[in-house]
Amino acid sequence: MQLRRSMLFVPGNNPGMIRDAHIYGSDSIMFDLEDSVSVLEKDTARFLVYSALTTLHYGKKELVVRINDLNSQLGIDDLEAIVRAQPHVIRLPKTENAGDVIQCEKEIERIEREVGIEVGTTRMMAAIESAEGVLNAKEIAFSSKRLIGIALGAEDYVTSLKTTRSPEGIELLFARSMIVNAARAAGIMALDTVYSDVNNEEGFRREAEMIKKLGFDGKSVINPRQIAPLHDVFAPTEKDLQKAYAIMEAIEEANRRGSGVIALNGKMIDKPVVERARYMIERANAAKRSTVEEV
């Protein structure tokens, strides 16, 4: 299971951060060619990220590259380079509808065929950053088999709503709910936006707890300091984990007895409870493996 609790944004034109990106323990590293790169340095950043991806080894980290919008030549130029550098995932920004994903997929497929990579190797994620995108979240989530997830890009989204971000995030509730439901319906991941105030750990933690409760799989982070509190929020408590193990044991016991009815401590256990327990254990094991790999 690929965990995506934390996706660390790394500015694509910063060699020091590109070099060190794997040491902070994020689940994914997301090299950025879009908003963190000045329009005058798009070419140099593209060379740098391509060169890093084809040279440096980041262990078992999932590598993602956020490209520029495909409505400009920059986005196409990014794909020409980045598909050949073979990160695991390409993140499409400003996705408005299924057509945007399909257009990006066509370009990726063309390049995969040109270089002889198996078609479909390059995975995608789509960032939804506007009111239109949010309303089309379902068609976006179902638009391509390459999609590993859809993400919210809040800064552009609140601008399109003609509002601003608040510490409580009430303005994002509808978008988050749409995105998480669309992602779950399509069987892909839901990934939350960045929390920009890096000095406010309490606010960050509150937001992380909220998005976890909403059903998100994780969040983009812009500072390595946000990774540990985020993973902490996503970790099950020991009590919850023990309960999950007890539920799974109760199922095994019931299966051994050939009983269709499962009970634990006198309470009936139904299918959704079992599913949640299994999912919690699976994620806890994946988190443990990822920590061991770090060490």
Binding site: L48, Y50, A81, Q86
Partner: peptide, 24 residues
């Protein structure tokens, strides 16, 4: 990366050539 970027700029060339470099 910096040498390539500087050379393309100095050649006023935007017809970038990218080799397949996948190693994952």
């Amino acid at each position: 990366a910096r040498t390539k970027a500087a050379a393309y700029r100095a050649a006023k060339c935007t017809d970038y050539k990218w080799n397949f470099g996948g190693n994952r």
